[in-house]
Every structure is written in structure tokens, then in C-alpha cells.
């Protein structure tokens, strides 16, 4: 069954789209990530113009993170003060990202940039996560406890000024690295059509030592509002948000996420991170392959962007 997408201007198979979004929703529900890093490349792969894929994906992530944020809100498992601060950086990053996105679109290098950034971002994150989870799994097996954090040890970024107290997380840290991180994630989110949860969550845990129980909720809170902003900015500045496509992705994603969340409950934390790392790396390798393999068709033809 086909449906015509009004903004992407092409017909797509409804069942294919629903199937993809259920599958991605399942994975995102299982791992508590938005799934944008999977969905955006898939959409581009099935022929949706990259600009429409990225812009529309922000609407889908909004829906997913609404569900997730509400879930943590009810359990009081989010640090609102930290979420608010991350949001400030995130919004600024989103704005810069959308401006950069439109500039790249004008010079015709959007696709190359998206591909390269995906490989770099996913490759680096995936490799770090994999190394960490393998180490953790190894230690769990050998029965040794994780070395406790030594009280007196400080990293350079802990000495930065503008310290702020976050009572909910029990932290007293400088806001500079927090703002820098959220700025970067907001930027990447707007340019690449990803929520950034797969970067934000490990960063909050390992760099800022936010209590694990609060991390998921806090990051979903920040992603929710950044993605609303991204949806609005894409809609207003480049008119590439396809409401029909977004609705299909949201419906499939929401259903898939529910089953995924249930499937994820039984997983051990290390196994969980190990599987997520493998997934992220696999996506990076698949996209990277297109960059290094001898192309079957070295040519591509794109209509030069004109105002519709």
C-alpha cells in the first residue's frame, strides 16, 4: 500500500515505513535511545531526500522523548535543574545547527557532511562504549568489583569556574563543560537528525558522574525540548518537515518502543551497553563502507536547490 508524501514529493510503501519504524522503535525502547541515528540513514537509504529525512526525524524524536520523559517524570527520576541548564546549551546548539544545515544545503554538500559526521560520531562513541562494556563484563566475570572512585582525584574540568550546585544529583560542578556538551548535542541533533541520547547518556554518567538513576530522565528532558525547537526551526527555515511521514514514523516508533522497553528489562547493564555499542558500531561501519568502498556508480545527479 502506497502513500504519497506531500513534502518529500514521492510515494512510499506504508507497510515498509511502519515496519522500519516499529523495528527502530523496538531498539530505541530497549536501549532508551531515541533511535534517530538508525532511522535517519534508513530514510535516506529508501530514497527520502536527506533534508526531509533529518527535518522530519526531529518530530519523531519529539514523540519518543515525550513518552520517555513522562515515564521518568512520574518516577521523579529526573534532575530538572540540570535538565534546564542542558536545555539552554541545547537550544543554542539547535539554532546554530539549523543555520549550518541550511548553509550546507545551499552549497550542495549536505549529504557528504551527514555521512562523514555519522561515521565519526557513531564510530567514536561505539568504540568507546564497546571498550568500556567489555572491560566491565570482564570484571563482572572475574568477580572483581569496579574500582571505586578515589575521593581526592579530580579532572581538569572540575576546576573550572562558574560552579553550580545540583541538589537532586548531589553535584557541585562548573556549568562550562555542561553547556559545551549540550551545545554540541543540540548542534549535532539539528544537523544529523538525531536526539543525541547515545552521546549525552554516557557523557553524563562517565564525565559528570550524574547518578545513573537520574541520567536517562534528565537526558530525555533535554532531548524533548531541543527536538521541539529543531522541529519548529526546520519547519520555519527550510520547510522540509513532512507531517505525513512524521505521523507514520511516530505511530510505528511508539508501538515498537513499548515492546522494546519490555524486552530490555531483563538485560544486565554490561550486556546492555555491549549490545548498544555493537549496534552503534555496526551502523557506523555500514555507512562508512560507502565512503571507502569503490563506488559502483561514481556519479550522482541532484537537482540544484531552488525555492519551491
Amino acid at each position: 500500500m502506497q502513500i504519497y508524501l506531500p513534502i518529500a514529493e514521492l510515494p512510499v510503501d506504508i507497510l515498509l515505513l511502519l515496519g522500519l519504524s516499529v523495528a527502530v522503535g523496538f531498539i530505541s525502547g530497549m536501549f532508551g535511545v531515541g533511535g534517530g541515528f538508525l532511522m535517519t540513514p534508513l530514510l535516506i537509504f529508501i530514497g527520502i531526500p536527506p533534508a526531509v529525512a533529518v527535518a522530519t526525524q526531529s518530530a519523531q524524536i519529539t514523540a519518543t522523548s515525550t513518552t520517555a520523559a513522562l515515564f521518568y517524570w512520574r518516577r521523579n527520576a529526573l534532575d530538572l535543574k540540570m535538565g534546564g541548564l542542558l536545555l539552554c546549551g541545547g537550544l543554542a546548539g539547535t539554532l546554530l545547527g539549523v543555520l549550518f544545515f541550511n548553509a550546507l544545503r545551499r552549497v550542495g554538500q549536505l549529504e557528504t557532511f551527514i555521512t562523514l559526521s555519522y561515521v565519526a560520531l557513531l564510530g567514536a562513541t561505539g568504540a568507546l562504549m564497546l571498550a568500556e562494556s567489555v572491560r566491565a563484563m570482564f570484571m563482572a566475570r572475574s568477580g572483581r568489583a569496579k574500582p571505586a572512585r578515589r575521593g581526592g582525584r579530580h579532572f581538569w574540568y572540575e576546576g573550572l569556574p562558574f560552579k553550580m550546585r545540583f541538589p537532586r544529583s548531589g553535584l557541585y560542578v562548573s556549568i562550562i563543560p555542561l553547556l559545551a556538551l549540550s551545545l554540541f548535542i543540540g548542534f549535532a541533533g539539528a544537523v544529523l537528525g538525531i536526539g543525541g541520547g547515545f552521546i549525552l547518556v554516557p557523557a553524563l554518567i562517565y564525565i559528570f558522574r550524574v547518578p545513573t538513576a537520574l541520567v536517562a530522565g534528565t537526558s530525555q528532558f533535554q532531548i524533548l525540548f531541543s527536538m521541539i525547537a529543531a522541529t519548529m526551526l526546520h519547519a520555519v527555515t527550510n520547510q522540509s518537515v513532512d507531517l505525513v511521514l512524521a505521523s507514520l514514523l511516530i505511530i510505528g516508533g511508539v508501538i515498537g518502543a513499548q515492546f522494546g522497553a519490555r524486552a530490555g528489562i531483563g538485560l544486565r547493564a554490561e550486556t546492555f551497553r555491549f549490545l548498544l555499542a555493537l549496534l552503534v558500531l555496526a551502523v557506523a561501519l555500514r555507512i562508512g563502507e560507502d565512503l571507502v568502498a569503490v563506488p559502483r556508480e561514481p556519479f550522482s545527479a541532484t537537482p540544484t536547490e531552488t525555492a519551491r
Partner: peptide, 25 residues
């Protein structure tokens, strides 16, 4: 709507997403 009332269209899209997310929850 997307071209001429882009702000409204953006709000509509965001609200659709929020509503679906809330419904699911």
C-alpha cells in the same frame, strides 16, 4: 501550509508529536 504558514505548520507538527507521545505514555 508548510510553505506559507510555516510557523503554524511547525506548531501543528510539534503538537502532533507531543500528543502521540503522551497518548503512548
Amino acid at each position: 501550509a508548510a510553505a506559507e504558514m510555516s510557523l503554524l505548520y511547525g506548531i501543528l507538527t510539534s503538537l502532533t508529536a507531543l500528543m502521540f507521545g503522551w497518548l503512548a505514555s
